[in-house]
Design a binder for these strands. Structure first.
Lengths: 126, 126
DNA sequence: CAGGATCCGCCGGGATACTG
DNA sequence: CAGTATCCCGGCGGATCCTG
């Protein structure tokens, strides 16, 4: 496997794919983007995203925490309070992530057009 | 929704998420990376990737074609021959994609360490 | 408030067999 | 060779209910 000029061993390739996979899952990127603005409580993330279930919000946050992108701070009051914040790794991954998002943003029309063209050719055949 | 300094309307956000999602699915990025080296036939992609099923290879290629990242050229010989190549859109998306991959590559150890630390704290509690 | 537990539908994705 | 068709399983992810 090669990426540009770099040779990549199989196991490394898998791990990288694993990290890239995190970009693909439904909520991770969104959460990272939100947390870049400022730290947030669990309930605030829930309100901001608004379409996420507690189950997936919790699971996604746990994964981000495990991978070292996010820190979780518990304040054992009643009612309890849990704050999430980006740590260094999380802020750094935002750099390439941001560029990809910007690319998608400025090229989305080309993708939409390509889809229209493709779908048109498919209609002809039916 | 905001990304850096840019405001993003809801529907656009969904579309961008959709494009980013393509990064997440199991084979798309790998195929794009392979095709950047040179155009390849269906069977060659199959051999290079080696763990992909025909079903997923075909489906992924169709999606990439529909979105305008890849071109499909059929030579109606017997046996038939189909070549795939990156077109402009595909080559351009490689730029931000490459940076993300490089980030993952050079930071994978930090992620691995974070996971070890996290898993260690979890073990204590059981 | 911040989750954990449970049930369940949907579909990504592999295995296998078949075709022009 | 380059697919299509079919079957099947695991897991994502939502909905609902419960708890310290």
């Amino acid at each position: 496997m090669r990426l540009g000029n770099i040779d990549i061993p199989r196991d490394t390739c898998q791990l990288v794919g694993n990290i890239l996979g995190r970009v693909g899952d439904k909520w991770s990127v969104l959460i990272i983007v939100l947390l870049r603005e400022r730290p947030m409580r669990y309930s605030e993330l829930e309100r901001q995203i608004e379409t996420v279930s507690k189950k997936m919000l919790t699971r996604t946050l746990r994964n981000l925490e495990r991978d070292g992108f996010v820190s979780r701070t518990v304040t054992p009051s009643i009612p309890p309070r849990v704050d999430y914040q980006l740590n260094d790794l999380g802020r750094e991954v935002m750099v390439p992530l941001d560029e990809l998002a910007r690319w998608a943003l400025s090229n989305k029309d080309r993708v939409v057009e390509a889809r229209l063209r493709y779908d048109a050719t498919q209609d002809e055949k039916e």
